[in-house]
Design a protein around this nucleic acid. Structure first.
Lengths: 177, 177
DNA sequence: GCACACATGTAAGTTGTTACATGATTAC
DNA sequence: GTAATCATGTAACAACTTACATGTGTGC
């Protein structure tokens, strides 16, 4: 049930409507936990039912602003402190590298290069965000920490992919069955 | 539908029964794509129905050995060459770092340390596997490449977590609201 | 006027988790 | 004999994806 806690945490940040939450997932949280509008809206309704958030406003275009309740703040703190993170992670792109040996070397190199280019674009995006000025409070510094994690993970992945491309391009690889 | 291709790829490796596939996921593939026996067994049945794998043997304890068919090999190659990897990744432990500012500094440090220790154990396990001798063919080198990816990603994560712990422990963090 | 972004919702289908259920072989 | 591992299966539930569906305000 990470989605609900991702929503609670985002609303601890500041009150938002569903669409703003959706954009927040797309630009930030979604790198760790993606969510689509068809998941977000029903979940917000459930969180209201359970008293963890409340609707604090209604704006143009039928928009509904939600804020965290005290119970909601308790709940996200409880989740952070008292539950173990789910460590299982699914990564399709990484899974595919286990099967490189099934491809012709040229094809394998192409796949790795595509992946490297994708990661390079992600890194450029992270660096762009990192260049934006931020506040000097724990919240802003927390986002810096998370972003730094994204940058380092992506840099490391690019280096690994470059190294992998070298391996598959090497005469040794070609000489083997 | 990564699970079915993970199974096909594992059977391209060598014929296996469901239980051996389960163990293979636990020790290797599962770091990129976890799967439980309750998912594996029904999926194997479907793959047989579709002619992508076939049962080639039956052993003690009702075990059933499966092998990839030509159609199955075509299918995994098609998947690797012609479909784009799903880039969305869910990582609960990483999501939680976005909400560190909601915790007391001591509690936040504890959470990060727990995460660092977990990663350190994973890294030790990867290094242990890496020390085992392997063959000199494309298949074995592919597993080396995947493993090297795991090692580098985990090393990078540990460095990031150590850096994050420093940030949260610093007097600056404590001085902010 | 028209395109685009804002804004919310539902429904069907797929995938994944947890729990239930059973039985065989091996090592001590 | 008994515990652990090997071995396979099903069922209920939860989570996620994709598609369907609709309407509002803003900028050109």
């Amino acid at each position: 049930m990470s989605l609900r806690h991702a929503l609670l945490g985002s609303l601890a940040d500041e009150p938002r409507n569903g669409y703003a939450l959706l954009k927040h997932f797309e630009q930030s949280l979604g790198y760790a936990w993606p969510a689509s509008h068809s998941q977000i809206y029903p979940e917000l309704a459930r969180l209201v039912d359970e008293g963890l958030i409340e609707q604090t406003g209604a704006g143009a275009r039928n928009s509904k602003t939600y804020a965290l309740t005290d119970a909601g703040l308790d709940e996200i703190r409880r989740w952070l402190e008292s539950t173990t993170p789910e460590r299982r992670v699914r990564n399709d792109a990484t899974l595919r590298t286990f099967f490189l040996w099934l491809l012709e070397p040229e094809e394998a190199v192409q796949q790795l290069e595509r992946e490297r280019d994708y990661s390079a674009a992600t890194l450029a995006e992270f660096r762009r965000i990192s260049d934006e000025p931020t506040g000097a409070n724990r919240k802003a510094l927390t986002y810096r920490i998370a972003l730094e994690g994204g940058i380092r993970a992506t840099e490391s992945r690019i280096e690994w992919l470059d190294w992998a491309i070298e391996q598959v391009r090497s005469p040794k690889w070609r000489s083997l069955e």
